[in-house]
Amino acid sequence: MSFGPHLLLALLEGAVTACVLAVTALGLSLVFGVMRIVNVAHGEFYMLGAVVAWFCASLTGGSALGGFLLALVCAPLVVAGLAIATDWLVLRRVNYHPESTIVATIGLLYLLQQAVLSGYGPDARPVEAPIYFRVAFPWFGYSGYKLVVIGASVMLLLGTWAVLARTRAGLCMRATQQDPEMALAHGVPVRLVYTAVFAAGAMLAAVAGVLIVPIQQAHYLMGLDPLLLSFIVVIIGGLGSLRGTVVAAFVIGMSDGVISMFFSPTLAKILATLLVALVLVVRPSGLFGERP
């Protein structure tokens, strides 16, 4: 294949990675931005989304579209329920202390992995794409569903932005982010906001899992890669900066697509990490982070 089409394919692949990554990382970034905690089990919420999608698909039997739509409803709800339980039972009790939260969510990560391994099994299971068509370029064919994923992700990103910028709930979140005490003084139910944000972050991960599963299969160990990529993205973008997260997701996603196409995917991940080092040397708070 000549260079032009090869690059086109690389960019398409990069765009899919970037979009799904942006959605996943946005969840992580939102939680950090508002609550100042890092959820290490974020990747497991993504994995759970994929696993729930598999269950939905096997429930609805023949209809791939039905299963997919059911999953789009169920996966976020299931994962949000879990996130709310985590918030109530664990995070509140450690008072959102950053380090304790990290240790607790590491514990949660392994509990969830083991639960899925015991309940769902070690196999990677496929889920059929809801819409299947093959886009035939002159040089290669491409999955139409992947283009759907790009579209759906962009809509999710816009939707999240609209909620944050245009609704009362979004206002409460932004107020809590800027100053929790002042927000409380103005009657913002900060605890409720925390719970809602933690659930919303988890839901974004779950939806990303549902979107990706027809491309990737559901497997109990699938959560680690998106977690690490999300970390890279939020660090480069600046912890807590949603705009930075989205920009960084596109930078990392596209470069990952191109580097792994022309060189090696392992190399792409190593280089992305080194990029983090570079960013930190130049701007310790990330590209869009606030100066401490």
């Binding site: 294949m1 089409p5 690389a10 299969q217 699938m222 697509g257 995917p265």
Partner: peptide, 9 residues
């Protein structure tokens, strides 16, 4: 690896 499209070219 979980996506292979990039290898076929």
């Amino acid at each position: 690896e979980s996506s292979f499209t990039k290898y076929f070219p």
